[in-house]
Each structure stands twice: as C-alpha cells, then as structure tokens.
C-alpha cells in the first residue's frame, strides 16, 4: 500500500524508487523472453532487429523460420521424440512418485527422512555427473542409444518434482475423511478411488506437468545417453546454437514460450482448485 499522506517525503520517494527497482527486475526476468518473439519473424538470418524491421517495412518480417521448423524432417523428428520420451517418462515418474508420496505422508513410514533425501537427489546431483554415469552404465546393460534408455533416465530426473508436489498436497490432507469413508462401509480400494484420488489429483497433475517439462527441456542426459535417433528439440537447439546459428531456433523458442504459458495457466487453475477443495480461501 502507498505510504500515508502524512509520511515524510523521504519515505514516499523511497516507496516509488522501490517500485521502480522492482519494475526493472521484472523487465530483466521477462524481457529476454519477449524480445525473441519479434526477432523470430525476422526475414534475414540475423539475431537482432534490422533497420527495416524497426521501420515496420512489410518485407522485413516473414514466417519462413516457422515454415522451416514445420517442414524440415529433422525438426519434426525431434518434436516427435520429445513428446514420446516426455510422455512415457512422465507416466513412469508420476505413477512411482505418487505411490511413494502416499507412503511418505504416513506417520508409520520407516526411514522417512533418508528415503526422502534419496528420492530428491536426482534434482541435486549435478546433471553432468548423472548423465555421464548413465552413459557408462546404460551402455553396459545395453539400453544406451535407445528411446527406452532415455525414457528411464528422464523418469528418474522427474521423480523429485512429483514427490515434492504430491507430498505438499498431502500435508493438508485430512485423514478423518478416509476414516469416515471406512466407517460408512467403503472398502480401502473404493476409499482410495472415490475419496483420496479426487483430493490429491490436482497435486498429482501439477507434479506430472513438472515432470513433463523437466523431460521436455532436458538436454544433458539426452546428449550423453541418446544418439541421433533420440534427438529431441533441446538437443537440436543446443547443437544449432553451437554449430550454425539460424533464426529457426528463435522460432522454436517462441513456440516453447507459448507452451510454457499454457502449462503455467493449467497449473495455476489446478492450484486454485486444490485450494478450494482443501477449504483454503484466498484472502
């Protein structure tokens, strides 16, 4: 809230200065993402605004980099791979993670802290170490350079996100509800599907979305464990930036920004629903 009228001028100056600083930081956060959107419509293969673009000349803008993305085989293969790998990795980590989170939320769980620390560790161990280890070990058991291998690796990396979000949902879980269900004669299975699942579903879905985006954005492990056959969108972008830098990358980046806006909106809606279900009202 703004300072009251009787506040000394120094306080009011500071109030507006603080706001201005915050605006600058927000520009730093979001600006770079917004700049690439117009750049991706550049007619020339540059990563900057041409004078013609600034003058809003008609020929300066084009959608040809988008066309290149949608028509070139290697990009399309990358899109297919990215979705295939991310979907299966998400299914595995969501299933295993939800199961584990249900166990971890119960007070009788033995070695709770140790297990929790272990399950979070794929997020903490530097990716290059995990990737190198997987590269050697997966080759030894014969699943390196296969989709299967990359899916398993990504599922492992997605597990911490599922665990964190689902356990957070279960913290506010009212165990009286399951007891009420049993006292009304419901079997444990039925209680699970009709009482527990609807309540934790928002948490599970947000965990799944986080696991999905983790796999979808991941590049280090794919570079090491995968081969050209498993080339994903981030892989193409990484090698694109390193070798021949083309605005197609900017077009892809723009599309990915919209994908993340979409995911973020879904997540926000889920969070609101979860709070409503658990009886938390926004002030």
């Amino acid at each position: 809230m703004p300072p009251p009228l009787h506040a000394p001028p120094s306080e009011r100056v500071w109030y507006y200065a603080f706001r201005a600083i915050c605006v600058l930081i927000f520009i730093f956060l979001v600006g770079p993402l917004l700049v690439i959107i117009p750049l991706s419509f550049n007619d020339l293969p540059y990563f900057t605004f041409t004078p013609a673009m600034l003058a809003f000349e008609e020929g300066a803008y084009s959608t040809k980099w988008y066309w290149e993305f949608f028509t070139e085989h290697s990009w399309q293969q990358a899109v297919k791979n990215s979705f295939l790998i991310a979907v299966f990795a998400t299914l595995i980590s969501t299933f295993l993670g939800t199961l584990a989170a249900l166990g971890l939320s119960r007070p009788e769980m033995p070695f709770r802290k140790t297990i929790m620390a272990l399950l979070i560790s794929p997020m903490i161990v530097p990716l290059i170490i995990s990737a190198a280890g997987m590269y050697f070990f997966y080759a030894r058991i014969g699943i390196a350079s296969t989709h299967f291998g990359v899916i398993l690796a990504h599922a492992a990396l997605g597990i911490p996100f599922v665990i964190i979000t689902v356990t957070a949902t279960l913290v506010g879980f009212d165990h009286q509800l399951t007891r009420a269900a049993s006292s009304l004669g419901s079997s444990p299975t039925r209680t699970f599907f009709t009482v527990i699942v609807p309540l934790i579903l928002p948490g599970v879905i947000s965990g799944a979305l986080l696991a999905f985006i983790t796999s979808f954005d991941e590049v280090v492990v794919v570079l090491f464990v995968g081969s050209v056959e498993q080339r994903t969108i981030p892989w193409k972008m990484f090698s694109g930036i390193r070798e021949e830098i083309r605005p197609t990358i900017l077009a892809v980046a723009t599309l990915l920004v919209f994908v993340s806006i979409l995911l973020l909106t879904t997540l926000e809606l889920l969070r609101r629903r979860s709070e409503r279900l658990r009886g938390i009202r926004p002030q």
Binding site: L29, P32, V35, I36, I241
Partner: peptide
C-alpha cells in the same frame, strides 16, 4: 514464466 520456460530458450534469448 521464466522458471517454466526451457533453459535453452532462455540461453538463446541471452545470446
């Protein structure tokens, strides 16, 4: 939004 946006997108933007 930046948190959810691909690491490579953000790196590309800075380039």
């Amino acid at each position: 939004l930046p948190f959810w946006t691909s690491l490579l997108v953000r790196t590309t933007a800075w380039i």
